[in-house]
Amino acid sequence: MAETMLKVEGLKRYFDVSPPWLNRVLDGSGRRVVHAVDGVSFSIERGETFSLVGESGCGKSTVARLVVGLYDPSGGQITFEGADLSGAAARRKHGDKQSRMQMIFQDPYASLNPRWRVGRIIAEPIRFKKLIQGGDKIKARVGELLSLVGLSPADADKFPHEFSGGQRQRISIARALAGQPEFLVCDEPTSALDVSVQAQILNLMAELQAELGLTYLFISHNLAVVHHVSDKVGVMYLGRLVEWAETRTLFGRPLHPYTRMLLDAIPDLDMSGRSRTPVAGEVPSPINPPSGCSFHPRCPLANERCKREVPQSLTVPGGAVACHAVQEGRLPPWHGGTVAAAE
């Protein structure tokens, strides 16, 4: 019934971080490659919000940039509304599909041109895509967009520095909406904002989704925010999607040990006195990831097989998980301490 809007299969992006040629010759060292995204697959249905969550360096922002085409994939496929959009040539061919996607960036200070008036910033996608002709009509549309995001049409004549962080993020959203997208990629849209302002922006995004029927790919490191906005959540670790599931399932019955660790690490605002066991260790460098399952050095359930063999994604009810322990049935039951049960 539900229509798949975006499908990503085996998506890969490698970055060459080798030292310069001369150093390589002198030191006799080889090329070095970061596997920023290493075989990620997921699909997003029309009208839903899919979130990717993970710690710094897990590749979640790279996935966002790959999806909108700011990077070309090193491998894998991106299918958007049935059109293959992997690679620049394919994107040019399907320009009409490409233009249905827009992106909202994290930093509302860096993503708006400080020398342009707000009206010009928001009108740029309209002019570029020739959606509306004629100065007056464009101006009216800009005013409409500003009202839609909770600003005043008169704000079009101001410069970005006259606005607070939350208002700037509203401007970014208005600019993204100017291109009449159906699909929005939001890369940490609220991480630079204070909590009360974050609540305003999250509410605005929910209203716009209901009103305009938007589909979101939402990138965040904040699990509570992800829980609030998403229909489905994917958890990334070192370039791989280790688990994805519907939000209620993921938070109520997490399977992957890394997901469990992340849930345990959320500070307890309810002050239930829950004891938490912070997992030792840190995210390893993606330049030299551990063998086998990249989470094995920090995993309480790791065994020999986890060190050797990369776990494949295993379909479970309501999601998928890549973990040997789940497959072999070695997984202890989830204590369920943080969240009310899924059922």
Partner: peptide, 12 residues
């Protein structure tokens, strides 16, 4: 205004 994981509000 703080989203929590213990309950899901429709609106913050």
């Amino acid at each position: 205004a703080i989203p929590t994981i213990s309950e899901r509000e429709g609106r913050l």
